[in-house]
Design a protein around this nucleic acid. Structure first.
Lengths: 349, 349
DNA sequence: GACGCCGACTAAAGCGCTTTAGCATCGACA
DNA sequence: TGTCGATGCTAAAGCGCTTTAGTCGGCGTC
């Protein structure tokens, strides 16, 4: 408690510091912001006063002067309750957080109903100068958000996208290559009938995965059947049952998310099918959940935490007016083979 | 795009509205804040101008005038990477978020290394007027945070605690009663040797659970062995192995968290033990993970999302200066029996 | 008819910081 | 010797809003 204020009970302001250091408030401001025009001596005196009085900037006052809010926003248009389920999301937020906090930038989280509510929030934030920039998830085909954000003048960074330059910079991981690797793994094991429990087709990354799997399939001689879902466990379970009911029952099933894969494994167990004896299972998203399953699932591993850090770093650069490439490359997810994929049953392999 | 500004390119301010409505800025401010002294007529005219110009308050300017920042903070002192794993945490944040956002209050998230860093953040936030209040997790024995927060004048709400009034209000769920119910369930199934993979002993809620289980045990004739862990899967697995290696091998194991329980189940499977045939398993935390396990685990169910909402509502009341009870009761977790608990093997039951 | 009061509104100050314009002072240079 | 340009600093305005201290006209009261 070394804090002492000139006017007791009040938090020290730069005026207090100025008085203590025997200079004008302007000089204090200059010293604090590393602007030229202050001698080393004076600067030192000012900084000493700052330390003695325990002064901290009042963010509101700073922001009023048209400065940064030192806050980055993340608006998610998904049912709030589902967020707790998706490890991807929590990991991403942790990563974002970790990087932002080293620069003392805060993360504002907001969960909304749908995209129109999301856009409203952006408008509000832009108007209120509440955030310096935002991170945008779940890009859709013909997504209106990038353009709207540009129009509002709110800096934004996209997570995902299709790898082509757009109105706002994107951090992009090559799902296409990853899915191709997964297809090759299954083909090498002799699988031909491959089921795919996909995500929401409107999402660009879901669509890319579907395309990649089918492309690779036609090249490798796989018969791929995709069933789209809304990423929920119920739909994933239903999709699994639908795949099992087909005439040509798949000998391998690829799930777009870890949660979906677990739901699928449960369905397979209920159906009395062994993994990977009867059906091989692979998850596109790796996570703790997937590792804890029986057997642990083969999955495409990527470091979502690291992805979050990369997105955060990109956003910080953008906000600070540095040049940011249109597309920032994130590491391509890599195949981690675990016990859930094996040779096709009764196959030649 | 009906927005039009008096001074093109600039966002409308109350001065613009005042001009348009033919009143003074003061009148606009009064109208916007529902203060008396403005006729209905004038008020309507002002609000019309607000709508026409698409005016939004500048939060910074508001905050400068000593008002709320409309932001609640949450600082978590845990390794950032572990957050993605814990469904509890994500659910809590979702719930907080959901309740706060209905009042247009933002949630600031910050992950730090340890409690001293956490306290630093509180100090900074208090000084910068960045948040109106904070939510505090993971209360420890002799935790310095409540008192420090009171000293800083930063309103705070505790999640957890021991149910006794402290310097700051707490939202409290009766873990003791919950753990007792779980013990009774196991006793009814004939179990006597009960293992307990606990959490971090320094945490008040962990300690309460241990105490509850042992109390109930001595009442019901259970032999309870608690092994503390740091909540990580590695330690949970190790603890499970330690329990299995004991002379009196437990016929039932209680895990303090869902993630720990899953890790434990994996260890049991590797040891060739069936659940619940050889060993019954119960998790104190319920979650999607637990439901997806094989077999689905018996667990104490509580609505963590709802808990988050309750905490948020309490914090909002506190911040607004309303009276808040010292201890706000959250629903006691309820026992959900699933397939992982069964009669003691070879027992009389 | 003077007085006080009330309702409706305004002027102006102030919140804490940044920024622009400007003012001395001093050395260098022609 | 006078001018120019740095250098180091200050005065003052301004950011957008809230709030305090009025002002002003009208109405009721004695």
């Amino acid at each position: 408690m070394t804090q002492a204020s000139e006017r007791p009970g009040r938090r020290p302001t730069i005026a207090d510091i100025a008085a203590r250091a025997g200079v004008s408030p302007t000089a204090v401001s200059f010293a604090l912001n590393d602007r030229p025009g202050i001698s080393e001596q004076t600067r030192a005196r000012i900084l000493a006063a700052v330390a003695e009085l325990g002064w901290r900037p009042n963010v509101a006052a700073r922001a009023l002067g048209g400065r940064r809010a030192d806050t980055v926003g993340l608006v998610v248009a998904r049912p709030a309750r589902t967020l707790g389920v998706e490890p991807f999301f929590a990991q991403l937020v942790s990563g974002l957080q970790a990087r932002l906090s080293t620069d003392l930038v805060a993360l504002q989280l907001l969960v909304v109903e749908d995209m129109s509510a999301e856009l409203d929030v952006y408008r509000r934030w832009a108007a209120e100068r509440r955030t310096d920039g935002v991170v945008v998830l779940d890009l859709e085909q013909d997504d209106p958000r990038p353009e709207e954000l540009v129009r509002m003048g709110l800096p934004a960074v996209l997570v995902g996208g299709d790898g082509t330059p757009g109105p706002v910079p994107a951090v992009f991981a090559d799902d296409h290559a990853a899915m191709t690797a997964l297809a090759e793994h299954l083909a090498a094991l002799g699988h031909v009938q491959v089921g795919h429990v996909g995500g929401i087709p409107a999402y660009v990354h879901s669509a890319r995965r579907v395309a990649a799997l089918h492309d690779a399939g036609s090249r490798l001689g796989l018969h791929v059947t995709t069933v789209p879902t809304d990423f929920s466990q119920d739909e994933a379970a239903a999709a699994t049952r639908a795949l099992l009911a087909r005439d040509e029952r798949p000998t391998a099933i690829v799930y777009d998310s870890d949660v979906a894969a677990l739901a699928g494994v449960t369905v397979l167990a209920e159906a009395g099918l062994s993994v990977p004896g009867d059906v091989s299972v692979a998850s596109f998203d790796d996570s703790e959940l997937v590792r804890l399953a029986h057997p642990p699932l083969t999955a495409m591993t990527r470091d979502t935490f690291e992805l979050g850090e990369l997105v955060a770093a990109t956003t910080l650069s953008l906000v600070r007016g540095e040049r940011v490439p249109d597309v920032v490359g994130a590491p391509t997810p890599e195949l981690t083979v675990r016990g859930s994929t094996g040779p096709v049953p009764g196959g030649a392999a």
